[in-house]
Amino acid sequence: MPTPSSPAIVDAPLPYVDQLERRPLAQVDLVVVHCTELPDLATARAYGERVLYASGTGNSGHYYVDRDGTVLRYVPDDRTAHHVRGCNTRAIGIELVNSGRFPHWLDSRHQAMDEAYPDAQIDALVALLRHLAVRLPALRHIAGHEDLDREQVPASDDPSVRVQRKLDPGPLFPWPRVLAQVPLQRLPL
């Protein structure tokens, strides 16, 4: 039974979850907030199930929060999910369903991220973050994917133009609202 401050979490493990590396919960000190940059949860699930590595695993966050506030756990906290370069072993990845730049992620003419995050989704995220702060003793920090992956890459429409590879959760993510309600500090930029 969830506590009043935590959402109901639906366990929906990815098919390869047992192949992901185990890690001690004591080393998890960071949450990384992402947006799926896909149209819906079903498409995000299909992307998460894709095997991309020789280990038989792929890219996925630990938790997915749908627009209506439904929270799904695709990867247990004690497994290392592949969601952000260089920080996976220490981080929990939370994906918010949001179209972002879909389907033109790297097209220089389509870099605006203009889908707002619904209140139900942000409320569920806050509840999940509070729950994780209690469950994970070392958890102290939070960052956006865009804070940690600042690589510039050639635009898909014009290779002479460079665009940021990751922009999520994007300019419409309500950082002040979230930070005011959780016991986590945003990593310095």
Rank of each mutant, 00 (worst) to 15 (best):
N59D: 14
T36Q: 00
R50I: 09
D40K: 04
L38M: 14
A42Q: 12
H62E: 02
N59W: 14
Y47R: 13
P39R: 03
T57L: 08
Y53N: 14
V28K: 02
Y47W: 10
G58W: 04
G48R: 02
N59F: 12
T57D: 10
V32A: 00
V28G: 00
D29C: 07
T43Q: 15
P39C: 05
G48W: 06
N59I: 09
T57V: 14
A46T: 14
Y64A: 09
V33F: 06
A46H: 13
R45Y: 03
H62N: 11
R50E: 14
T57E: 12
L52Q: 12
S60G: 10
A46I: 11
V31W: 02
Y47K: 11
P39E: 09
A44W: 00
H34T: 00
L41H: 14
A46Y: 10
Y63I: 01
R45I: 01
A42C: 05
E37T: 12
Y53H: 15
E49V: 07
G58L: 04
G61T: 09
A44E: 01
E37K: 09
L38I: 07
G61I: 01
T43S: 14
A54E: 12
H62C: 06
A26V: 12
T57F: 05
Q27S: 14
D40I: 05
V32H: 00
E37Q: 15
E37N: 15
T57H: 11
D40W: 02
G58E: 03
V31I: 10
R45E: 05
L41S: 14
A26Q: 15
A54M: 06
D40S: 06
E37S: 15
A54C: 06
Y53S: 13
V28M: 07
A54L: 08
G58R: 04
A54W: 03
L41G: 09
G61F: 00
Y63K: 00
G56D: 03
T57G: 10
L38D: 04
L38C: 10
V28F: 03
S55A: 13
E49K: 10
D40V: 05
Y64K: 09
D29N: 14
G61Q: 02
Y63A: 01
V31G: 01
A44N: 01
Q27F: 08
D40H: 07
S60K: 03
E49L: 06
V51M: 10
G61P: 03
Q27D: 14
A44T: 09
R50D: 11
D29I: 04
R45L: 02
S60V: 08
A54S: 11
H62Q: 05
G48V: 02
L30T: 06
H34G: 02
